[in-house]
Design a protein around this nucleic acid. Structure first.
Lengths: 182, 182
DNA sequence: TTCTTCATGTAAACGGTTACATGATTCG
DNA sequence: CGAATCATGTAACCGTTTACATGAAGAA
């Protein structure tokens, strides 16, 4: 529970950050390790501040624009480490609208079902190909820069996940006797 | 949005159901096509009733225990079909606590990281093996009974997903130079 | 008789999204 | 000058979980 807390704490432990930085970081990487909107991040930062896990310094950007740069405190680092050492339960099966549609797919005509399957296949496959293409670039960076190693590992995880989904769709098509367009 | 609505509508379209039946159905199958607690299902059923998508008849179980058996209406079936024909966007990357822990894993000692990885590997692998073992049983049923076909397809999806996760953990171990116990 | 399962609900809290709201800075 | 980006917040709403609450039926 309260996992956003630890995602923020972890980022603040890498280097001092603003709420805006955190938002960008969550949106940026393909290999999303977490996701949150700024409307969730700012209140959480306030809460971490109250709990004494982070502190901030106001910096002036340009003429007068204030930004709050948060750093982790000793107490914050301790709590982060404590959390990192904990056991992770395997996550509940994610809710997947496509899977739900497929489950009740016998109500559709053969053509409709084929369309449903093909549309998903197209999307998943193009995402898979895109991630694969990004792997090469990240792979080289991961060799020397240790900060790219974790990005690389997560990217590999994403590729394997997408690959499994694509393969599943191919299996479904075969099982249902549906032709997949490529 | 409101996907629980369609999960319930779909089940009610298979055969008349009580709220309790729906709850059981969601909890039962390995190849969970959806998940919800009874505290979410009962209010949703009331809402579907108001919208005229389901109707119910009260049945007496035993001496005096009343149960509400819901069936889908014509309007409900139409809305379900309309929804089934829609396109499914690919779901957002699921939030995964283990992935988050791994991302900040450089803060742990080599031994701690090894433990973290091994614990997850053990869980994932045993789940994978369990699902695989269930595949055989379901496979035979899927040959003749059409109602087992969709169960079978979803189970295959689950196996591929778990398999990919296991493979990813193995890749991570190799990348980090960590030995996985089997 | 006691325990499990069947059966139906409500209330509070939580995590997350969407929308509302404001204003400075930088780049073309 | 105008558009994109930087920067920080709040409020309402929605979906979901946990806890509260009750009681009958069936099996051991």
């Amino acid at each position: 529970m309260r996992e956003l807390k630890y995602a923020i704490l972890g980022l603040a432990d890498c280097s001092p950050v603003t709420g805006y930085d955190i938002t960008k970081c969550f949106n940026a990487s393909l290999s999303k390790f977490w996701d949150a909107k700024h409307s969730q991040i700012y209140p959480e930062l306030h809460r971490l501040l109250e709990e004494g896990l982070v502190e901030y310094q106001v910096t002036i950007q340009g003429e007068k624009m204030e930004k709050k740069v948060y750093s982790i405190t000793k107490k914050g680092r301790e709590e982060l480490l404590e959390w990192l050492r904990k056991d992770s339960d395997i996550m509940a099966v994610p809710k997947d609208t496509f899977r739900l549609r497929l489950y009740f797919g016998d109500r559709l005509t053969r053509e409709e079902l084929s369309e449903t399957l093909n549309r998903q296949y197209k999307k998943r496959k193009s995402r898979f190909i895109y991630l694969e293409s990004r792997k090469q670039a990240t792979s080289e960076a991961a060799q020397d820069k240790s900060r790219y190693q974790r990005e690389y590992m997560l990217l590999c995880g994403g590729i394997l996940r997408e690959g499994a989904y694509v393969k599943w769709l191919e299996e479904c098509a075969e099982f249902l006797g549906i032709e997949l367009e490529d």
